[in-house]
Design a protein around this nucleic acid. Structure first.
Lengths: 243, 243
DNA sequence: CGGTTACTTGATGCATATCAAAGAGGGTGG
DNA sequence: CCACCCTCTTTGATATGCATCAAGTAACCG
């Protein structure tokens, strides 16, 4: 047994793995409510997975053997129609959960949008833990409920908002999600391309681009290097977003 | 103690209330996995609520004090934009759950679409039961996951399907949901009006009407009394639905 | 620095919205 | 029991927001 692990071994059952102790989004993940001993139980079954930008993570319809928690980076969730049309059903950021389903198949395909680090939990062992750690199941239910509420907002956006309202809502959504992770809400970083945004909002890349240009022209936002967007007039954007 | 109750009294803790024993959709509801003793625990806190068509059930943003299970009838879920535009986020049928949220406010407004009977559970006592009946929480998580998968399908529909595809998908969805309740999948009954369908599909009533007329003309469906739709060519509808 | 991909901008077209009005049920009261 | 009225649905004519088609421009990468 190598010296580097001595401390860990000395505290079996009470200390969590170093990587988790250092995890910057633990308080927002599925792990949030767990104490050190429970964390240890959970980490007995998990594995870290690192992927580069563009790598596939899950494929719609394939066996849902794992649940993932995004640790670093961003992920795009999507579904395809038979003729190739694509709908992006969501973007995931650190702390978000991926692959939760009650069926035995993934509901969506997903790909790394940037380089990502994921915590991967095999599903059966994870579900077995529910019996010993009810907090874990409680947490998953809360996260699923939140996702459901977000999905309903997205349905309103897709079904009843104009292109301008959609793009404004999108920028504000990303801003709020940054704030939820205790990051500044401005500038907003856009790790995804215009095509991803378009497929998420039910628009075309051209319309997204034109709308962003319009916001830029009217002084609501300004574009910064590396896909960052500064919100110059948040109140006006909020106004835009609601109609 | 009246004779009619003798059998029930003789088996306290093992028999479920008569109304639940007779419930035609119990196997599809939150109650599905519970045994008689657990059912009794659950029914200690629930109350039956009967409402006539059009009655409000929940209002978006109001305190989420209760969770409901639809027992008889249909419900429409919706959200409003500030200028009055409406998005219907879902229709509920017997067995479906209403009002599940991890926040303290309802995410959607809801109204009875027909006369309905609901089982109403006060939220705090319900959550207290989770500790004693883990199956209950497991069941809610499964139901929430299913709703999430349905919400993702709806996002694809709203964001990327044409009017024809939307209406075809809608008819098939209702048909499948009837089948899931072990009812015939054909004819499909439409308890909601064209305006509800339009707000659910991100269309106008006129477009919904025209599309239905077109399906009728091309022999894919035929309209029957009381808002029933016979699926004359299911395969062609499926084809329509996917593009 | 050249090649490639992503983004932006412009011109045109179409699917669906909007505006308008005529049928069709469905319930109620005479 | 029928006639009327109200609401919902259907149908028609026109308008428009966004898609599509088509270049041009900027950003990125090797």
């Amino acid at each position: 047994m190598e010296p580097a692990r001595a401390a860990e071994v000395a505290s079996v059952g009470t200390e969590m793995p170093e990587q988790c102790a250092r995890c910057s989004v633990r308080q927002f993940t599925v792990c949030a409510p767990l104490d050190a001993a429970e964390m240890r139980r959970l980490t007995e079954i998990h594995r870290f997975v690192e992927l580069e930008a563009g790598a596939p993570i899950t494929e719609e319809g394939q066996p849902a053997d794992h649940v993932f928690s995004v640790s670093i980076g961003s992920v795009r969730l999507y579904k395809l129609l038979s003729d190739g049309r694509r709908a992006v059903t969501g973007f995931l950021f650190p702390g978000d959960l991926l692959g939760l389903t009650s069926r035995d198949r993934y509901a969506c395909s997903s790909e790394a949008l940037t380089a990502v680090r994921l915590c991967r939990f095999p599903r059966r062992p994870l579900e077995s833990l529910f019996a010993d750690i009810p907090k874990l199941e409680r947490r998953l239910l809360a996260m699923a409920s939140n996702e459901l509420a977000a999905a309903q907002d997205q349905m309103v956006l897709l079904g009843r908002k104009t292109a301008t309202e959609k793009v404004a809502s999108f920028l504000l959504q990303l801003s709020r999600r940054q704030e939820a992770r205790l990051l500044p809400g401005d500038p907003v970083s856009l790790p995804m391309g215009r095509a991803d945004i378009a497929d998420y909002l039910g628009l075309t890349t051209e319309t997204v681009s034109r709308t962003i240009t319009q916001f830029k022209t009217t002084g609501l936002i300004s574009l910064q290097p590396q896909g960052r967007v500064a919100l110059r007039d948040r109140a006006a954007l909020e106004e835009c977003a609601e109609g």
